[in-house]
């Protein structure tokens, strides 16, 4: 396949990752980030080795751009409250309401947690690939992932008010 088609095929996934990074209610800004990522990827295209999957490579470019831009703006990665804009609710979509509240819960997670959650749970990257993408050790990927999942379960279960004492059975082994 021509390289341009390969790249175009990835755009929807880049848009999704960008929204998780920038905020789900800020589609335009997220697309700005996608555009920056595509431009950067095109300029560095000769650095991509075709035996590696393209998507994690693009994700790592996007992650780095986002972190650089965010650092340039505020000097930190703390997100401000106004970033948590409400996702849009399409009329007559009761089934989507649950999804929207889930998106909101993900959006409320700290950036490092929601990034790992997206890469592994939603995009289906392996731990090693996720670690390479974010430039962090695999153990960090796992601990962030387990925190993200636990916080999310806590959130959604808080809403359904179903306590699950049985979850105590499996403990975390202290290293």
């Amino acid at each position: 396949m021509a390289s341009r088609e390969l790249l175009i095929e990835q755009i929807p996934h880049l848009r999704r990752y960008a929204r998780v990074l920038v905020g789900y209610g800020r589609a335009d800004e997220a697309d700005d980030l996608v555009q920056d990522t595509l431009e950067r990827a095109c300029a560095k295209w000769h650095l991509w080795q075709s035996h590696r999957s393209l998507r994690p490579w693009l994700f790592s470019i996007m992650h780095n751009l986002f972190v650089d831009q965010r650092m340039a703006v505020s000097g930190s990665l703390e997100q401000s409250l106004d970033e948590m804009a409400e996702p849009k609710v399409a009329a007559g979509q009761e089934a989507r309401l649950e999804a929207i509240s889930l998106i909101q819960s993900v959006q409320n997670l700290p950036l490092p947690l929601r990034e790992v959650l997206l890469l592994v749970c939603i995009e289906g990257l392996g731990y090693r690939e996720a670690a390479q993408t974010l430039g962090i050790p695999m153990g960090t990927v796992m601990s962030r992932l387990s925190r993200a999942r636990a916080q999310l379960l806590h959130c959604t279960e808080g809403k359904t008010a179903a306590g699950r004492t049985s979850l105590q059975v499996v403990g975390r082994k202290t290293p």
Binding site: S3, R4, L7, I8, I11, P12, H13, R15, R16, R19, D31, V34, Q35, L38, E39, A41, C42, W45
Partner: peptide, 16 residues
């Protein structure tokens, strides 16, 4: 989001 139409400006940027 994966099914949303891709804005043309993004298509234009994808020129390796």
């Amino acid at each position: 989001v994966l099914d949303e139409p891709v804005p043309t400006r993004l298509l234009h940027s994808a020129r390796p």
